[in-house]
Amino acid sequence: MQSNPSKKIIVIGGGIAGLSLAAAMRDWAEVTVIEREPHLGYHASGRSAALFTETYGNRLVRALTLASRQAIVEGGFVAHQRGALHVGWKGDDAAIDRLAGELQALVPSVRRLSAAELHALVPVIAIEATCGGVYEPDAVDVDTGKMLAACASALKASGGTIRTGEEVRAISALGDGLRVETSAGAHTADIVVNAAGAWVDVVAGMAGLPGLGLRPKRRTAFLFDPPAATDIAGWPLVVDLHEQFYFKPDAGRLIGSLADETDSEPCDAYPEDIDVAIAVDRIEQATSMRIGRPSTPWAGLRTFAPDRTPVAGFDPRLPGFFWLGGQGGYGFQVSLTLARLSSALMRGEPVPEDVAALGVTAAALAPDRFLTRSATP
């Protein structure tokens, strides 16, 4: 069904942030997505081992996550009922008790596990090595490919356009709108959305705007085989309490990671051998698993705002320029809600009622918060 647009909008970035917003706007705007890479989800979105967990991130991120669960479930984007387990070690009893209390206040299904219960759930962690952990049973794996494809299909079905392999080179004011110059020509729009992931500050610079201080951070992961004759299908995501590593099942194998956040310039990220080696050593030290040489290492950039809360809103310095970035490691679990919220803001509407009821305000997400801060002596 073709939309009846009243606004012309260009979205820069074909990851989950840009695509979910483009799909959310399809009924009221003529939307064009411009992606520099040859296919959608090329960078962070295509390299994510996404887990939907309601206990991850700061208060605003958790609120956005809570508001997203229904859409993820109803959209058919749940790949597996996974669960998430924070593991404490000998001497961590007080920290685990404290974490259990904090998370139970947010998510009532969260449980404090004893050392024996934790070992029964993940037998490669010895009873004598752990003080137990904190378990979130309702965390789920997200089918990232399906979510990306669904957003792209919904946009195209409504008459929207996706342009891949096209690089944005300059953005400038043009009358009441904006002009976007690319490697394939020039486009005009009423609104330009900066959803360029690790490149959000770079794209702002193309519009003559200083960035907001959003920082890409590299995370490295790899695959390895589980112990022989071990059924790992029911294992949760296992996260070290001190965030020194994690591992989780994936299609019969295990994904391992250092859980690193290494500052990086925007780039096509590649794994560092030392990061893989340190992660392997930490997982082997904490479990009975012997990984040896892992396979298929990869890296992706997760981009965070200075306060680790996403940015969504118009830039007061350039009318029509809308920021949607800094989704960090939470992109797939918050993108559908941020898309609804951003679509409403662009139409001059308030934050959707269900999202506002969770304490999310437009001001808390607006780029203005960094501009005000930077202007304060």
Rank of each mutant, 00 (worst) to 15 (best):
Q2N: 08
Q2G: 03
S3D: 07
K8V: 12
A17C: 09
A22N: 00
A23C: 00
M25W: 00
V31A: 00
P38S: 01
G41T: 02
Y42K: 05
L51V: 15
T55W: 06
T55N: 03
R59G: 01
R59Y: 03
L60N: 13
V61A: 04
A63M: 07
L66A: 14
R69D: 00
Q70V: 15
A71V: 05
G76W: 13
V78C: 02
G83H: 14
A84Q: 14
K90L: 15
D92K: 10
D93W: 09
L99C: 04
E102L: 14
L103N: 02
L103V: 03
Q104V: 09
A105C: 10
L106V: 13
P108C: 09
S109E: 14
V110N: 04
A115N: 09
A120K: 11
V124I: 15
A126Y: 13
G133A: 00
Y135G: 08
Y135S: 01
T144G: 10
G145F: 15
I162R: 01
T164C: 14
A173L: 09
G175Y: 06
G185S: 10
V192E: 01
G197W: 01
V200M: 03
V203S: 03
L209V: 11
L209W: 04
R215I: 14
R219E: 05
F224M: 13
A229N: 14
T230N: 07
I232S: 09
A233V: 03
H242M: 11
E243K: 12
A251G: 09
R253W: 08
L254K: 06
A259E: 10
V276Q: 13
E284L: 01
Q285P: 05
A286R: 03
A286T: 05
T287V: 04
I291L: 14
W298R: 02
A299D: 09
G300H: 12
G300M: 02
L301G: 08
T309H: 06
D315Y: 10
D315K: 02
P319G: 13
F321N: 10
F321H: 06
G325K: 03
G325P: 13
G326E: 12
Q333H: 04
L341F: 06
L345Q: 08
M346K: 00
A356R: 11
T361M: 09
F370H: 07
S374A: 15
S374Q: 15
